[in-house]
């Protein structure tokens, strides 16, 4: 464990907390893409399929359960309690292409042709693009509440911090996972335009509006 990775994981926890806080405090899921949230649920279930059968550490065990449970809880809240506040007319990204593309990527790039390794690789590729429905929705609305923007920002920080973590592990631990690293860089690049607009607007105290 190094500080980049710990910081990334904490930013990930913060993002989930921000999102659930926003939905429950406002009693509204407006501006949040349920498609992105469904994709994250799929990501965590496939990534952590061995949560009960393979022990790494108490830390990873607890975090995995939190990520699985909170993603399902978020989807459940959006689909049931706050269904009427959703924006299905602007949440129109075709996620079947993201899922299909991730299946193809996992078939080509995997560490081993076993079920667990294939679903692990699938989860890595799917996570790298799972934010796209949310960013697409943001683009269609043109502006967003700062809280929604902070959620996406915290999520982006999580993945961005994993890049120095991989550099650190490559240098000091002789550890390198090319699938996680390439997908992680793709994911961070997807956020880069968002980070730029975030810096230009939100950091200067303005409303988040896309130019």
């Amino acid at each position: 464990m190094n500080l980049f990775r710990l910081g990334g994981d904490l930013a990930h926890l913060v993002s989930i907390f921000i999102l659930l806080q926003k939905i429950t405090a406002n009693k509204s899921a407006a501006g949040i893409s349920i498609k992105t949230q469904i994709l994250y649920s799929i990501v965590y279930v496939t990534r952590y399929i061995d949560v009960f059968t393979k022990w790494i550490s108490l830390y990873t065990f607890v975090m995995k359960l939190i990520f699985i449970a909170s993603s399902f809880y978020t989807v459940w809240l959006m689909h049931n309690t706050y269904k009427s506040t959703q924006n299905p007319q602007i949440d129109t990204f075709k996620i079947r292409y993201l899922i299909g593309g991730s299946i193809i990527m996992a078939a080509i790039f995997n560490h081993k042709l076993t079920f667990n390794e294939l679903v692990w690789s699938f989860s890595i590729w799917l996570e790298s693009v799972a934010i796209l429905p949310q960013l697409f929705m943001l683009q269609r609305t043109g502006e967003a509440e700062n809280i929604t923007v902070h959620y996406i920002f915290a999520l982006g920080i999580y993945r961005a911090l994993y890049i120095p973590n991989w550099v650190y592990r490559w240098i000091f631990d002789q550890y390198f996972d090319y699938i996680a690293t390439v997908a992680g860089i793709i994911q961070t690049l997807i956020y880069s335009d968002f980070f730029y607009v975030y810096y230009q607007r939100v950091m200067k105290g303005k409303k988040f509006e896309l130019p």
Binding site: R5, D9, H12, R47, T60, M63, K64
Partner: peptide
């Protein structure tokens, strides 16, 4: 090599 791969990251 039947050793499974350790994915220790989240």
């Amino acid at each position: 090599d039947e050793k499974t791969i350790d994915h220790d990251e989240l």
